[in-house]
Simulated assay, not measured.
Amino acid sequence: MLSSCSSLAWLSIVRCHLDDELKVDLPLPSLLYLSVAHCRVTGIKFNAMKLKTFNCRGSRYPIDLTQSLELKDADLYFFYSVTLEYILSKLPTVLPSVEYLYLRAAATLKTPALLENTCRFSQLKYLQLELYMVHEDADNILSLASILTSKGSSSS
């Protein structure tokens, strides 16, 4: 149904329980805003080249917005735990052009030695990070600095 909505500019999907992937392979050339909240899906894949804003609230599942090269604002609120590895290695590939990132989630800070090989948020200008951690991760709190170094270098 969504594939035939080429003029669709704003889409909010709330409490949609597909138990399958929310997938639109055909281009949605006018879609500027996408919000997926409290849905039971196994993944999100949209071909929306002009998408500017993406909001996601709920479980963490695979997100493919790689065609959305104009995506500037992302607001992610994951109800379940994510790892620092996911934040540093997966999110930059899913959101390569994001400038404003709001991320709220429970997080574990234990990471393998891959921090030198993380991807970069090369366009990131603003980061609001709310990570809820377990007491056992308190000794590893400095690993959060890796998020700041994953921003990439900027030229003056």
Rank of each mutant, 00 (worst) to 15 (best):
K45D: 02
A107D: 05
D64F: 08
L71Q: 06
E21I: 12
G58P: 03
H38F: 11
S97N: 14
K151E: 00
L84R: 01
F54T: 01
C39R: 02
S6M: 05
I141H: 09
S89R: 13
Y61M: 14
Y132M: 07
M1L: 10
A74C: 15
D139K: 12
F46D: 09
P29S: 09
Y132Q: 10
L51T: 02
I13Q: 01
G58M: 00
Y86V: 07
M133F: 13
T42W: 07
A37I: 00
T42V: 08
Y33V: 08
N117S: 15
P27C: 10
S4Q: 13
H38Q: 06
L88N: 14
A113M: 07
H17L: 01
T83C: 02
Q67F: 10
K110G: 09
C5S: 13
D75A: 04
E116V: 03
R40Q: 10
L91V: 05
T42D: 11
L129F: 11
S4C: 12
T111W: 02
S3I: 00
C56H: 11
K45L: 11
L129H: 04
S7C: 06
A138R: 14
S143W: 05
G43F: 02
R40M: 00
P62G: 01
S89I: 06
D73P: 00
I87D: 03
F78I: 06
L115A: 14
T66Q: 12
K110M: 12
S68H: 09
D64Q: 08
E136W: 07
H17G: 01
M133I: 15
A74Q: 04
S35G: 07
I44E: 01
T118A: 14
T66I: 04
Y86H: 14
L95G: 01
S68W: 08
N55C: 06
M1D: 05
P29K: 03
K151C: 15
L129E: 05
P29D: 03
S122Q: 11
V94Q: 15
M49C: 07
V36Q: 00
S68Q: 06
L71N: 02
Y100N: 15
S156C: 09
E136F: 08
L65G: 08
I63R: 00
Y61P: 00
L26N: 11
N47K: 14
L127S: 04
S122K: 14
E70V: 04
L84F: 09
F79T: 02
L2Y: 10
I63F: 01
T108L: 02
P92D: 06
S89M: 14
V134Q: 15
Y86A: 04
A9T: 12
C16G: 00
Y100G: 00
K23I: 11
N140Q: 15
S153D: 10
V98Q: 03
K72G: 09
S155L: 12
L144W: 03
L22K: 05
N117A: 08
S81F: 01
Y102W: 09
S7L: 09
K52Q: 10
L34A: 05
C119G: 09
A106M: 06
L22H: 01
G152T: 06
L115Y: 14
C5W: 11
P112H: 07
S153M: 07
D75T: 04
K23N: 13
E136P: 04
K151L: 02
Q123A: 11
L88M: 12
D20Q: 12
